[in-house]
Design a protein around this nucleic acid. Sequence first.
DNA 1: GTTTGAATTGAACAAGTGTTCAGATAATAT
DNA 2: ATATTATCTGAACACTTGTTCAATTCAAAC
Lengths: 200, 200
Amino acid sequence: MARKTGSHSDITGPRIRAAALRLFAQHGYAAVSMRQIAAEVGVQAGALYLYTPDKQTLLFDLMDGHMASLLAAWAAEPKGDGALAQLEAFVRFHIRYHLDRPDEVFIAYMELRNLSPENFAAVEAQRRAYEGALEAIFVEGRASGAMDVGDVRLTVMAVIAMLTGVTTWYRDGGRLSREDVEAAYWRLVRGMVVGTPSPP
Amino acid sequence: MARKTGSHSDITGPRIRAAALRLFAQHGYAAVSMRQIAAEVGVQAGALYLYTPDKQTLLFDLMDGHMASLLAAWAAEPKGDGALAQLEAFVRFHIRYHLDRPDEVFIAYMELRNLSPENFAAVEAQRRAYEGALEAIFVEGRASGAMDVGDVRLTVMAVIAMLTGVTTWYRDGGRLSREDVEAAYWRLVRGMVVGTPSPP
DNA sequence: GTTTGAATTGAACAAGTGTTCAGATAATAT
DNA sequence: ATATTATCTGAACACTTGTTCAATTCAAAC
């Protein structure tokens, strides 16, 4: 036997990416075999190569697609006026977007070392572009006097690490709602950049 | 030929752990073979099994040992009086300790999914104990009125994620000294928990 | 100098790896 | 109903995987 009934290229392609995403996130790129991905889709391993040239490209497409979507979504986000309003928008956007895509986020932060040098450079460039968006907000906030930012680069890295970490502990249906979480993180970030009353 | 000249059990054991640590951190547990570890030590793959029952235990020992050392080091750290002083001690300790052991930290946060269920539970318990140390500081800080902490658990996770993230970007000999970094992060954390002047 | 025992080799095992491809099948176009 | 083509199978390729173990070698004890 060969081709299954109801098989279509435009349905199998996305299913392969979805299966790879799930399995890579759960077990890690190196620990997942092409045969496992194929089994999840209900297809033989050879069929995967109709949709991806190799395993490495499969990983790269997932990460590259995720970063591109992230940048596009932030570009399309309504930002409000003033640096503080933009910072709040960034914080809430980042949390919302990341909580909606835990597998993509996990892969994008964990599988960088499994990318070939060229693929790594491409993903890294997108990551820096995203960090640049937050950096621009801090620069403007400092210029306008709305914020008291110390080292901009360090603050960017600190805030992003803090926000992204939400995916490691937040679970839907838990003690806190997503709105609770957004508000709590915004309160923390706000405290980080609006000068404290009197340093000791 | 068999046994090499100058080979000793008490020298090979640590060298195996060191090689495994380095390779696991660089390429990931699943991507590193026992033969690669053996080659790094200058020994045949079979010899590794004099020092570890299997690959999984090798990983677990590294992670378990790291968490145990971390807890012991924090317990031995001079903490000072008052919740704010203890928080500063925690921040500085965490950064210093983690910057000194980038490979251990990387493994402890990235290879959890490669642990067997029992081993995972053991490491997770130690992680929770460490988080508990920070949680206790926040609880005391709130009780004494020295801090304005919202959700304690969320704040614990946020601060630890933020601090641990320092290992992803800090490089010795770069623009900032370790003292700069410690001071900058402490400033940020302080702002997160000492009430801001006037919420909008 | 001989015996003893720990440390290590090197080969073997069965299973799994990513990838290729000729051939088989089913949907589509005629 | 027939021909065409995109889709998928199943087997094969050469190689790597974690782990075991009899045989070998070296260092220390006597």
